[in-house]
């Protein structure tokens, strides 16, 4: 395989965990709730996976328990943001703090214990002979799951009536309320499911990437995922490419070292963040007379009787 393909393969495997978190974040934000708790939920997802897999050795059960645990954190965030109408930023921050602390606390007993897990792979030997697609010939099921999820979410958000409702809820809750959509139920559902996906991100990290629990093992990837949501402009398909782009940059930096390109990796790593700001500025300028693409009521709690 040539260089480009290798980087692509590394980007896919490096970006998958991010992708799950980003998709979860998109669901949250599309419903008008920003979730800064991604890092904490990922850590909880990872530590719960470690604990339960070591106990049960059953991938399916572990996956379910992890979904419940991360969903619970999502429920907490939803309760605070939607029912109690607390400040979403502060609530998200609290989720991250609490999740980071709790995961370290829970993980003490399993820290460093190797997790004897093997994730089933899907082998497509057909693709082996096709030059460029051969990197897809042997990916684990979760990579396929993440790709499928991006497409499904895209179809869901842009092609179904529920998806249109979701957009309405995130943009203009009082109108959708008038249309008879339960804003509260919609927001709850998407925040909880979104949090579950963030949990899957942690699950993937520990089951595939580094199969043993280490305190704080996400090392900031949850925050990167939050940046990526915006980079992807709340579009699940863009998120797919965005996650691979972020995932691939790490790998690109290391490869440049091997071939003695002397660019400080720090500047390479700045690119995505600066690019995000520039892209947003550009589209903000281009659409200065049009409504913006971001969910308009993002960050605002919905007061039902606010429609005067």
């Amino acid at each position: 395989m040539d260089m480009v393909q290798l980087i692509l393969a590394a980007a896919i495997s490096g970006g998958t965990s991010l992708l799950f978190a980003v998709l979860g974040g998109i669901l949250n934000e599309k419903a008008g709730v920003i979730n800064l708790g991604t890092e904490g939920i990922m850590l909880i997802g990872a530590v719960i996976s470690a604990i339960f897999y070591l106990q049960t050795e059953n991938l399916f059960v572990t996956f379910l328990v992890m979904l419940v645990a991360s969903g619970l954190l999502g429920l907490l965030h939803a309760f605070l943001c939607i029912t109690i109408r607390a400040n979403q930023i502060v609530s998200g921050l609290a989720v991250t703090l609490f999740g980071t602390g709790l995961s370290a606390y829970l993980g003490k007993s399993v820290a460093g214990v190797p997790i004897p897990v093997s994730i089933p792979k899907i082998e497509l030997s057909l693709l082996d002979s096709i030059p460029f697609l051969s990197i897809f010939s042997e990916l684990d099921i979760f990579i396929w799951m993440s790709i499928a999820l991006s497409i499904i979410l895209y179809l869901y958000m842009y092609k179904t009536s529920w998806g249109l409702h979701l957009k309405a809820v995130g943009d203009n809750p009082s109108t959708s309320d008038a249309m008879g959509i339960s804003v509260t139920a919609f927001r709850y559902f998407h925040v909880v499911v979104g949090a579950m996906l963030m949990g899957v991100a942690g699950f993937y990290l520990i089951m595939v990437y580094s199969p043993n629990w280490i305190e704080g093992m996400t090392s900031g990837r949850g925050w990167i995922a939050i940046a990526l949501i915006i980079f992807a402009r709340w579009n699940p398909i863009y998120a797919l490419f965005g996650a691979y782009f972020f995932g691939g940059l790490d790998s690109l930096g290391f490869r440049m070292q091997i071939y003695n390109f002397d660019i400080p990796s720090y500047f390479l790593k700045m690119i995505p963040y600066l690019a995000t700001i520039l892209v947003l500025m550009f589209s903000g300028w281009k659409n200065r007379h049009k409504p913006s693409i971001e969910p308009k009521s993002l960050g605002n709690p919905y007061f039902r009787e606010q429609r005067f």
Binding site: G14, L205, S219
Partner: peptide, 12 residues
């Protein structure tokens, strides 16, 4: 300490 980055470095 960043298992993900370390793994990327190893894979390269």
């Amino acid at each position: 300490f960043d298992p993900t980055a370390e793994r990327q470095a190893a894979i390269s």
